[in-house]
């Protein structure tokens, strides 16, 4: 089945997809396929964004006003829908990133604690 191809990859942690998408868009506007490729490449092929989650997420972000969209010609000279992060989206990303950092630190603190300290 299709799933077996991703055995070595990590499934995305719930709620982090929005953050990754917004981060990717900070480098510049991009279409859906480009975003998924970018995440895959910049994670050294570890993270695979499923299209089934990516597109609903993009539409959700668009509705929330964190990204805006425009139809443009792609590199391959095809018309594609390009997404761009908005001011609101940047603020949201900063927020998300901060929360993420705190969570990672907290989890790390718990996981690395010595037995005696518990």
């Amino acid at each position: 089945m299709a799933k077996s191809a991703y055995q070595n990859r990590i499934e995305l942690v719930q709620g982090t997809l929005d953050m990754l998408v917004l981060k990717t868009l900070q480098w510049g506007e991009q279409h859906g396929y480009g975003i998924s490729q970018a995440i895959r490449v910049s994670s050294n092929e570890v993270l695979q964004v499923e299209t089934g989650s990516l597109y609903p997420a993009l539409h959700r972000l668009e509705r929330a006003g964190w990204v805006s969209a425009e139809w443009k010609k792609s590199d391959a000279n095809q018309r594609a829908k390009f997404y761009k992060i908005t001011m609101l989206g940047k603020k949201h990303l900063a927020n998300d990133y901060e929360r993420w950092g705190k969570m990672v630190a907290t989890i790390e603190a718990i996981m690395s604690a010595k037995e005696s300290a518990l």
Binding site: H31, G32, Y33, S36, T51, Y55, W71, S74, A76, Q78, R79, A80, K81
Partner: peptide
């Protein structure tokens, strides 16, 4: 638009 967007992804 939705059709086109998905189609573009598949094609790419």
């Amino acid at each position: 638009d939705l059709d086109k967007e998905i189609q573009f992804h598949v094609d790419s």
